[in-house]
């Protein structure tokens, strides 16, 4: 952030902040026992937040210690102790039914680039995005679900995963994109429109005319790490993040950062993206998700 002001002012503000912070913390700590949690009073909500912040500050270290322990037990094998995605398990190869071999590289957590988000391209994933991926795992990639872990434990993992990239401390979170499915998604009309968009948006360049992931560009794509990747095959398909209409919509909207899949948030209107959802759900034979 850039601000026009005199240098001496900055020094003073630093000192002021220190003093203020100390003051608040001591007041809040003193009142901790006495404060009750008011439910509906707007003004009081802030003080509750303060209290929560203070507690969090205390819990933070414990949470990270827990996260580190769980990460060491469950995640290191693929993501590596330093989170760079080069764990001892290495690259996982999957031969699809069509015979093509996918190479799955575990995510390099140090770059702060994540595919499955509910925010625009280039944005950091929200905590709940990371929590969802950790909880549900990633289909087809052998990232297992973590439903055996308690919510607190999974949250601790989220907190620990965020320590690998400096982006999480340096950047502000983006606004969440809500996937509100219109009722007409999956209708004949919408599928026809979606099919036209599929062609118009040049999806077949990578995903092929029939959606089987063998378009003319399918062998040219590399990800941020220089690894060759293949486009999604709608025909055999379960989308890695899940094939519900919301997830398909979010993939078009947010893009899959780090991979070749770009964001269509600016190239297509909301309604058009939903039409594309109708068509691709049909390609994937997942119309049952609409019911």
């Amino acid at each position: 952030m850039i601000v026009n002001k005199k240098p001496s002012l900055q020094c003073i503000s630093y000192i002021l902040i220190m003093v203020f912070s100390l003051l608040i913390f001591s007041i809040a700590a003193a009142e901790e026992g006495a404060l009750k949690a008011p439910q509906d009073d707007g003004k009081n909500a802030v003080s509750v937040d303060v209290k929560k912040d203070v507690q969090d500050a205390g819990n933070n270290e414990a949470q990270l210690t827990l996260g580190k322990k769980l990460f060491g037990e469950r995640c290191v094998v693929c993501h590596g102790a330093s989170g760079n995605g080069k764990g001892p398990a290495g690259v996982i190869k999957v031969m699809e039914k069509s015979g093509r071999v996918l190479e799955i590289h575990p995510r390099d957590l140090t770059s702060g680039t994540f595919k499955f988000r509910t925010v625009s391209t280039g944005c950091l994933p929200l905590d709940e995005d990371l929590l969802r991926t950790i909880t549900d795992g990633i289909l087809k990639s052998f990232m297992p679900d973590a439903k055996v872990l308690k919510l607190d434990e999974r949250k601790a993992l989220v907190a620990y995963v965020k320590t690998f990239s400096p982006r999480f401390t340096a950047e502000e979170p983006c606004k969440q994109i809500a996937a509100k499915m219109p009722k007409w998604v999956g209708s004949k009309d919408s599928i026809v429109k979606g099919e036209a968009l599929y062609k118009k948006m040049k999806c077949p360049d990578c995903h092929g005319n029939d959606g089987s992931g063998n378009g003319p560009k399918s062998n040219d794509i590399v990800d941020d790490w220089g690894n060759k990747i293949l486009p999604f095959n709608f025909r055999t398909g379960n989308l890695k993040r899940g094939s519900t209409p919301d997830n398909v919509y979010l993939t078009f909207t947010t893009g899959l950062d780090g991979s070749g899949m770009p964001s269509y948030e600016d190239s297509l209107k909301d309604e058009e993206r939903w039409n594309l959802v109708s068509f691709t759900l049909k390609l994937m034979n997942k119309a049952e998700y609409l019911k």
Partner: peptide, 8 residues
């Protein structure tokens, strides 16, 4: 030589 998960 290839160790791959086979979807079939």
């Amino acid at each position: 030589k290839l160790s791959a998960f086979d979807e079939n």
